[in-house]
């Protein structure tokens, strides 16, 4: 079981600076926990591309083609009916359901992908073990550093804007 150190910040700028400096020193395995999205940290940490949008594209395309194919198949081959003298293959009319299903397919695929890539739902994370991290959804920013890779406490305490250090199981 590896332990993690949570460096506590209350402002975005010093935290971003801390990330840069730690990364510059070759510390790996950094992560951040912020109550709101901080694009600068995302950029500084350079996590992998999420791949959500690619999944959405595939999901949407599959849903669309399946919907269109099903409409065409059922209207032309499976149960052909003379509906008001219209052609059996009424492709413009098939477009509506196709479009809606494309969006819905993409949305559902994206949602599932997002949840899975985030590793959610996960209700019992070590991060929640201490009440001190409750502020991570309020007004406090945490930078997590694996204890094994972390520089010594003295070095850490020199980071500007650091409000404290919390240890959690990781």
């Amino acid at each position: 079981m590896s332990r993690k150190l949570l460096l506590v910040f209350t402002e975005v700028a010093p935290m971003v600076a801390a990330v840069r400096s730690l990364r510059g020193e070759g510390v790996t395995g950094l992560d951040a926990h912020t109550p709101w999205r901080v694009p600068e940290i995302e950029n500084a940490l350079e996590p992998d591309g999420p791949g959500v949008r690619r999944a959405m594209l595939i999901g949407g395309a599959l849903a669309a083609s399946a919907t269109f194919a099903f409409q065409a198949w059922s209207a032309v081959w499976f149960y052909p009916l003379d509906i008001g003298g219209r052609p059996l293959f009424s492709w413009p009319a098939f477009g509506f359901a196709t479009f809606e299903m494309a969006i819905l397919g993409a949305a559902v695929t994206g949602f599932v992908t997002m949840i899975r890539r985030c590793g959610l739902p996960r209700l019992n994370h070590p991060f929640f073990a201490t009440a001190e991290t409750e502020a991570a959804t309020d007004d406090t920013l945490y930078l997590s550093v694996p204890e094994a890779a972390a520089p010594d406490r003295l070095r850490l305490s020199k980071l500007s804007g650091l409000q404290g250090i919390v240890e959690v199981d990781g």
């Binding site: 996590p47 959500v52 959405m56 949602f111 890539r117 985030c118 209700l123």
Partner: peptide, 24 residues
Amino acid sequence: GILALGWRGSARHWKIWQSYYGAM
């Protein structure tokens, strides 16, 4: 807790979340 699904606000979460939310 159930509704939040275990959201920890990690940078990785935010990145994925943003990717999906923006696409939506």
